Amino acid sequence: MYMKIKRLMDIILSFIGLIILSPILLILVTAIKLDSKGPVLFKQKRVGINKAHFNILKFRTMRIDTPNDTPTHLLTNPEQYITKMGKFLRKTSLDEIPQILNIFVGQMSVIGPRPALWNQYDLIAERDKYGANDVSPGLTGWAQINGRDELAIEIKAKLDGEYVKKIGLWMDIKCFIGTIVSVVKGDGVVEGGTGALSKAVSKMKSKEMENKYGDPK
């Protein structure tokens, strides 16, 4: 029953979001066009519910000569591909706003495991262990407010599994509020990607997660 209610809330929230955020969307579109050559939106094949593929929408944050279907953390010196506007969009997570359309049409949910790239086989396999591929992926989720890019794949999958196990209104509220806090603080964003921890503070966070969820090694 909750999953039906969750879908209804997704439709309502995404519709309201599109209306309220339309002025911001217009400003961002203009800024992206002025900053670099290329399309405003970036489409990328991702893994949805039951491992069905769909095209996720994002504001383009990288140059048009960036290798396709390659996670940022697998690029050599990813900073060289990120545009000036892209750095701001990634830091504030505003590049994710177009996914409101993915939510509205039913390909995603507001809250859920972040959709893996179609070729992130290691992450997909780990999520299979916890049933995390059997729910709609989300704009944000439990793993995102507990480490985001800082987490090793094994720990991220465990957190996604914990979300699936505890899925419900209260869990979604905690993820929603936690996301707002994380975005304001800029937590967990590491250019260089999944499992790449930055400086001493990031290492301390990783150690705390390992103590709670086990050493990924």
Rank of each mutant, 00 (worst) to 15 (best):
F59Y: 15
F59Q: 10
F59L: 13
F59P: 07
F59H: 10
F59I: 06
T61M: 06
T61S: 15
T61E: 03
T61K: 07
T61Q: 04
M62V: 09
M62E: 06
M62G: 04
M62R: 11
R63T: 13
I64N: 10
I64P: 00
I64H: 03
I64M: 14
D65I: 11
D65E: 14
T66D: 02
P67M: 09
P67N: 11
N68I: 09
N68Y: 00
N68R: 10
N68D: 08
N68E: 11
D69A: 05
T70N: 09
T70A: 08
T70P: 04
T70W: 06
T70D: 04
T70F: 03
P71M: 00
T72C: 10
T72G: 00
T72R: 01
H73C: 06
H73K: 13
H73I: 00
L74P: 00
L74A: 09
L75T: 10
T76P: 00
T76H: 14
T76K: 15
N77V: 08
N77D: 14
P78V: 09
P78K: 12
E79C: 06
E79W: 01
E79L: 13
E79Y: 08
Q80V: 13
Q80W: 02
Y81M: 07
Y81Q: 07
Y81K: 01
Y81P: 02
Y81G: 01
Y81T: 01
Y81S: 01
Y81A: 02
I82T: 05
T83A: 05
T83D: 03
T83M: 10
T83G: 03
K84E: 00
K84Y: 02
K84L: 12
M85F: 10
M85Y: 00
G86S: 08
G86A: 08
G86R: 09
K87I: 08
K87G: 13
F88R: 04
F88L: 15
F88H: 02
L89K: 07
L89N: 06
R90G: 03
R90E: 02
R90W: 01
R90M: 09
K91D: 02
K91F: 05
T92R: 09
T92A: 11
T92H: 07
T92C: 11
S93K: 15
L94T: 04
D95N: 11
D95Y: 03
D95G: 07
I97W: 05
I97T: 03
I97P: 01
P98Q: 04
P98Y: 12
Q99H: 12
Q99A: 08
Q99G: 12
I100F: 14
I100V: 15
